[in-house]
């Protein structure tokens, strides 16, 4: 199988997954070229270690290659769940590095495959990714610090609510409330952003 030499940019991610399911290495190569920088950026931000981030990325792309037949059935924005898969792997790495007891609070790969992320109310389709990065930072920074910090600890360090409560020395009930309010606020802001774009 030769590598197609034209129009690779116009091939959708979903098609690349279909071609990977047909064992076409050029499709994996194209998917990597398209998304590796963003995935690697997230991995480095979470892990703060480029060598381990590279291992995570390698593991992720090999997993995608081996399971492309399952993923290609998903529709919509594959980058959204690629980012979640990448984040889950980074959190697993952090846990094993910090020798924290392993618990599966992240949503499993199987569950992710079955979720139709394009049906979730995501503004991904209409916003360019670089623009989205700026907007997300603005949205996060618009939260009060007391809500932003627990959300960041959960998202970037994979801490559970009780671990966050213990780290910040704040009652568990308070942390639960702050996370809930912060997430609800982010949800509303994202919806507004999505409506403005459309």
């Amino acid at each position: 199988m030769g590598k197609p030499n034209l129009d690779i940019e116009s091939v959708s991610d979903v098609t690349l997954f279909q071609e990977m399911a047909r064992q076409k290495p050029w499709a994996l190569s194209a998917l990597y070229d398209r998304h590796a920088s963003r995935l690697y950026g997230l991995a480095v931000k979470i892990l703060k270690d480029e060598t381990i981030a590279q291992d995570v990325l390698q593991d992720l792309f090999l997993y995608l290659w081996q399971n492309a037949d399952k993923f290609q059935q998903s529709r919509g924005q594959p980058l959204a769940w690629l980012m979640i898969l990448c984040r889950n792997r980074c959190i697993d790495q952090l846990r094993s590095r910090e020798k924290r007891q392993r618990r599966s609070t992240t949503i499993s790969d199987d569950v992710l495959r079955n979720l139709k992320l394009d049906e979730s109310e995501s503004p991904l389709e209409s916003v360019h990714y670089n623009e989205l990065q700026l907007k997300m930072n603005a949205v996060l920074n618009s939260l009060p610090e007391e809500q932003k910090l627990p959300i960041q600890l959960a998202f970037y360090r994979g801490l559970s609510q009780s671990e966050i409560a213990s780290e910040l020395k704040i009652p568990l009930g308070t942390i639960k409330t702050r996370i809930r309010l912060g997430m609800q606020k982010l949800g509303v802001l994202l919806k507004e952003m999505s409506n403005q774009e459309s």
């Binding site: 950026g41 390698q58 979730s120 503004p123």
Partner: peptide
């Protein structure tokens, strides 16, 4: 489904960073 949009896009708050070519 509604709330999942938040972590979906939270990932995008990090900057893109090209990995080394050898990877």
């Amino acid at each position: 489904m509604e709330m999942l949009a938040v972590p979906n896009v939270l990932s995008f708050a990090s900057e893109a960073h090209p990995p080394p070519r050898k990877l």
